[in-house]
Design a protein around this nucleic acid. Structure first.
Lengths: 145, 145
DNA sequence: AGCTTCCCTCACATCGGTGTGACGGTTCGA
DNA sequence: TCGAACCGTCACACCGATGTGAGGGAAGCT
């Protein structure tokens, strides 16, 4: 498939597809005219890349973890140098930290929404003040990195 | 506490603390000389902000969800306009998507690491090829946004 | 042939988070 | 009283992800 179709199917500007390729996140072949040609699998790859980018990982890191993600999860581990392993372990832990932070805060937002919605549905209209209501709000302390 | 201490305790450049304040993510009082003065709670707030920033949320969004996160989780819902609620719901869902994407990929990295390490420990030294080994690698397909 | 639509490369612009330094005031200990 | 260490504002610079457009081929329709 050419870049236009890939762009549509992934909802990603062509500009960015070329950029991702330049950063080594996706690959393409070239037709006899210079057009880029992508395999079907690139669609998922692009979606994956964009998800990670959106989750705050820089292209540099994404590029490093991509080899872990290759489709048939074959047993072709590259050289797997100790530094490479250390890097992956570090990134795995950073991802875990991100997940925890996001989850905590998402839960807080969700709780807030649940409370405000049940409040609204049960009649009470106004804004601030009032203590000693019937809706119990559990504590939620967050910190992190 | 003044900005220097906050900076040390949160491992955050003063520059950024001022920036976060400018973006409305933290607040400060001012001493009689113009020095900023922070409450103890600001330490956690800064950590929280940095965690979210690191997880890919822009300050604009963080600012919007912060009211949901206030410490005693009091019942002082502000006006809570419908648009505000809609925004929060959207962000909650985006955070969930991020979490899922990160978790999937983190698990893939973790599996890869487990495999490569157990392989190394069980003797086999080399690089690529070989199919039909004893370490079963489960499939792992990811996509997303 | 001409027109439209796709593709190419190149390059400059923007935006958000961050680094850095200039320049000046305050606090405090030697 | 001097100097070090702290604070303030302002402003320019950087980097990574992204937008945008210029200038030019290639493919396909009519």
């Amino acid at each position: 498939m050419r870049i236009g179709e890939l762009s549509e199917r992934t909802d990603t500007p062509r500009r960015l597809l070329r950029y991702y390729e330049e950063q080594g996140l996706i690959v393409s072949e070239r037709c006899t005219n210079g057009y880029r040609s992508y395999s079907e699998a690139t669609v998922d790859r692009v979606l994956q890349v964009r998800g990670l980018l959106d989750a705050g990982l820089p292209t540099r890191i994404i590029k490093q973890i991509l080899p872990c993600l290759d489709k048939p999860r074959a047993i072709h581990f590259p050289d797997a140098t100790p530094e490479m392993i250390a890097t992956l372990e570090r990134e795995r832990d950073r991802m875990t930290a991100r997940i925890d932070c996001l989850a905590r805060n998402r839960d807080a937002v969700a709780d807030y929404l649940d409370a405000v919605i049940s409040l609204r549905d049960s009649g009470a209209g106004g804004s601030s003040s009032d203590l000693g209501g019937q809706g119990e709000l559990r504590e939620r302390i967050d910190e992190r990195s």
